[in-house]
């Protein structure tokens, strides 16, 4: 096989891209395996040091916060629950509302769709005070429900599901009807399996979205047991909190690396579905 110059250039660009993505992560990881003094005096590291186990153990189990109760492990669990709840509910609700919009030809379907679409212009950050007011009036501050609920409606996912359902030929529905399917079984037996790939993709995006929420949990939670990873990043290892002691740079790196694991796992796990959907077109 002859290699064309264009291919070489393309590969160089791709390799540069990969390096750009991977090197910072590697540096963080390598640096997280030294002790903070080394890093403060010698700068960030490219090679693995001997403090790996100690740093990670410390980060996961050290109790912090004003109450000296909350651990990083607890925050990971909180973030995971929040992201999982947001992603799952977003996917379920969007898929179902798109189903209603596409298959129930009621008069207001189009205006309602645009109304949903317009909410893209008002993200949570914009409506944060009214949202907070509602959630606190409902007595949901400092609860998982309060963390998740205001974020579960998704115009983006509804839009994507709607576009996908519209490509499904009408005959499929008609055929299913004649085979005795009702509205619910058509959704479960047809739309859900046909949109597996779509669901996996949406789930990944929405998981990452939920996982990286910062402002909402910050406002929502006063009890430290509901702190999330992203909040912890700000709070736990700041110098002010540590007082006069040395900044704990190595632990911070360990914390960053750990915080990346849940979303990465979700991507790795759902990737199979993606690829399946790509290689066998079923429609």
């Amino acid at each position: 096989m002859k290699i064309k110059p264009l291919q070489i250039i393309a590969h160089i660009i791709l390799i540069l891209g990969v390096l750009l993505m991977v090197v910072p992560i590697w540096i963080s990881f390598a640096s997280s395996s030294h002790d903070s003094v080394t890093i403060l005096t010698e700068g960030m590291k490219f090679h693995i040091g001997d403090q790996l186990a100690r740093n990670y153990n410390e980060v996961l189990n050290e109790k912090g916060g004003w109450s000296e109760e909350v651990t990083a492990a607890k925050m990971f669990i909180n973030s995971f629950i929040m992201a999982l709840g947001i992603a799952t509910l977003k996917v379920v609700i969007s898929a179902m509302s798109a189903y209603a919009l596409v298959y129930y030809r009621f008069k207001l379907a189009v205006p309602i769709f645009w109304l949903i679409f317009i909410t893209l212009l008002v993200p949570l950050e914009v409506r944060i005070f009214p949202s907070y007011k509602i959630v606190s009036d409902l007595g949901l501050t400092n609860s998982y429900t309060g963390l998740i609920l205001p974020l579960v409606a998704s115009a983006t996912a509804t839009f994507f599901f709607r576009q996908f359902y519209k490509t499904i030929p009408d005959e499929l529905l008609e055929s299913a009807k004649l085979d005795g399917a009702n509205a619910w079984s058509f959704f479960i037996d047809f739309l859900v399996p046909l949109s597996k790939t779509m669901i996996a993709a949406m789930f990944i995006f929405m998981f990452v979205y939920g996982y990286s929420q910062y402002l909402w949990p910050l406002i929502m939670t006063t009890a430290e047991e509901y702190w999330t990873v992203v909040m912890g990043m700000k709070i736990i290892y700041t110098e002010s909190y540590e007082g006069v002691a040395l900044p704990r740079t190595a632990e911070r790196f360990a914390y960053i690396i750990l915080s990346m694991i849940p979303p990465v796992l979700v991507v790795v796990f759902l990737q199979k579905w993606f690829i399946k959907g790509l290689i066998q077109t079923e429609k």
């Binding site: 008609e174 055929s175 299913a176 004649l178 047809f190 399996p193 046909l194 429609k283």
Partner: peptide, 28 residues
């Protein structure tokens, strides 16, 4: 339509793409 007990063969067949042949037949 689901109560009429009629069966229809469509121009483009409208087979269920995600089900194998057995399940296509068995679904009804």
């Amino acid at each position: 339509p689901s109560e009429r007990d009629v069966a229809m063969v469509f121009q483009n067949y409208a087979l269920y793409p995600h089900m194998n042949v057995y399940n296509n037949l068995a679904y009804g």
